[in-house]
C-alpha cells in the first residue's frame, strides 16, 4: 500500500451535515472572500428565489384563487389535506414511485457507468446511444412512444402474444400504469450515468498506479479506491434522484394527459399540485401542498445526510 492509498483510507466518520466541518486548525475565517464568491447566488436568492418562495409560503395560509386578493385562513389548507383522499392517493403513488424507481435507476446507471468507463473500443458510441433516451427526456413525443410499447396493440403485447398470452393495455390498467412510468424513469438512466462517469474520471489515476506498483489486485483497487472515492457522487445522485422523483411531473402529465389516471394511479404529488393551481385555481391549497412536499423532502434529505457519514467518504 502506498502512502497515497493509505491517505485515502481514513475511515469515513467525522459527523457533519453540510460539507466538511471547519477542521483546519487555526485558520482564519474567510467570510469576506466566501461572500464575494457566493455573491451571484446570494443576489439570485434574494431577488429571484426567496421572494417567490416566501410568497408561496404566505399563500399556503390563504385562500387565493389567482385573481382574488389572498385571504388569510390560518391552517385551513393543511387541515383540509387530512381529509383529502386525492392528497393521500398522490402521496401513495409518489412514495411507491420514489422507493422503486430511484434505486433501480441508480443501480442501472452505476453498472453501466462502470462498464462504459474504459476498456473497450467504441465506448463513446455506446455512451451516446445509452444516453439518447435521456435526451428525449419528457418531450411530448414520449406519450406517443409509450403507447406504442405499452398500449393494447403495443410491442409488449405483441411479444406476449408470441407465447400465447393476451396482455392488458398496460397504460390503462390502474395496476400497471405506474409501473410503465417507473420503467420510463429507469429508461432514462443516462443522466445519473453521466454523473457517475464524471465521478470515475475524477479519481486521480496516480492512485491506481501507485497501488499497482504495490501489487494491489484489481478487486482490491476497486474496493479501496474506486468505491470510496465514488461515494460522494453516489450520494449526490441519490439525493438528486430522490428529490427529482418526489417532484416527478412531466412524465405523468404527458402520458396521462394531465389527469393522473386511470383512477389516480399515476397521480404524482406535483401533478396534483398542478391540477389545484392551474386547473382549479386553488393556489392557496396548491401552495400548502407544495410546502408539505418541501418538508417531506427536507426530512428525507436530512436523514440521508445524517446516514451519509457512515458511508460517504470525502477526500478533503
Amino acid at each position: 500500500m502506498t502512502a497515497a492509498l493509505r491517505a485515502k483510507e481514513r475511515p469515513p466518520g467525522s459527523p457533519s451535515v453540510g460539507p466538511s466541518p471547519p477542521r483546519r486548525r487555526g485558520r482564519r475565517s474567510q467570510g469576506l472572500a466566501a461572500h464575494a464568491f457566493m455573491s451571484p447566488w446570494l443576489i439570485g436568492l434574494v431577488l429571484v428565489t426567496a421572494a417567490p418562495m416566501l410568497a408561496s409560503l404566505y399563500l399556503s395560509f390563504t385562500d387565493y384563487n389567482i385573481m382574488s386578493t389572498p385571504t388569510f385562513v390560518g391552517f385551513d389548507n393543511f387541515e383540509r389535506m387530512v381529509g383529502d383522499e386525492r392528497f393521500w392517493a398522490s402521496t401513495r403513488v409518489t412514495s411507491l414511485y420514489v422507493l422503486v424507481s430511484v434505486p433501480l435507476q441508480l443501480v442501472f446507471a452505476l453498472m453501466l457507468a462502470l462498464v462504459l468507463d474504459r476498456g473497450l473500443r467504441g465506448l463513446s458510441i455506446y455512451r451516446s446511444a445509452y444516453y439518447l433516451p435521456s435526451l428525449l427526456g419528457t418531450s411530448v413525443a414520449v406519450a406517443v412512444l409509450w403507447k406504442q410499447i405499452f398500449g393494447h396493440d403495443g410491442l409488449v403485447n405483441q411479444a406476449l402474444a408470441l407465447i400465447g398470452i393476451q396482455g392488458t393495455n398496460w397504460l390503462q390498467n390502474p395496476d400497471s400504469a405506474l409501473w410503465t412510468l417507473i420503467i420510463l424513469n429507469v429508461w432514462t438512466f443516462g443522466s445519473p450515468m453521466v454523473i457517475f462517469l464524471a465521478g470515475l474520471r475524477q479519481i486521480p489515476e496516480e492512485l491506481y498506479e501507485a497501488a499497482r506498483v504495490d501489487g494491489a489486485s484489481q478487486i482490491r483497487m476497486f474496493r479501496h479506491i474506486t468505491i470510496p472515492l465514488l461515494t460522494p457522487i453516489v450520494f449526490f445522485n441519490l439525493i438528486l434522484q430522490t428529490i427529482g422523483s418526489f417532484q416527478a411531473f412531466t412524465q405523468a402529465h404527458v402520458i396521462s394527459g394531465g389527469t393522473g389516471g386511470p383512477v389516480d394511479s399515476t397521480l404524482f404529488y406535483t401533478l396534483y399540485i398542478y391540477q389545484q393551481a392551474f386547473v382549479n385555481f386553488d393556489m392557496g391549497y396548491a401552495s400548502a401542498l407544495a410546502w408539505v412536499l418541501l418538508l417531506a423532502i427536507a426530512v428525507i434529505t436530512a436523514l440521508h445526510f445524517t446516514l451519509s457519514k457512515y458511508w460517504v467518504f470525502y477526500g478533503d
Binding site: 417567490p52 387565493y64 385571504t71
Partner: peptide, 14 residues
C-alpha cells in the same frame, strides 16, 4: 394582510 393585493406582494421583489 387581507388588503395586501397580490401585485403589491410581489412588486417589491419585482
Amino acid at each position: 394582510m387581507r388588503h395586501l393585493s397580490r401585485r403589491r406582494l410581489f412588486m417589491g421583489a419585482g
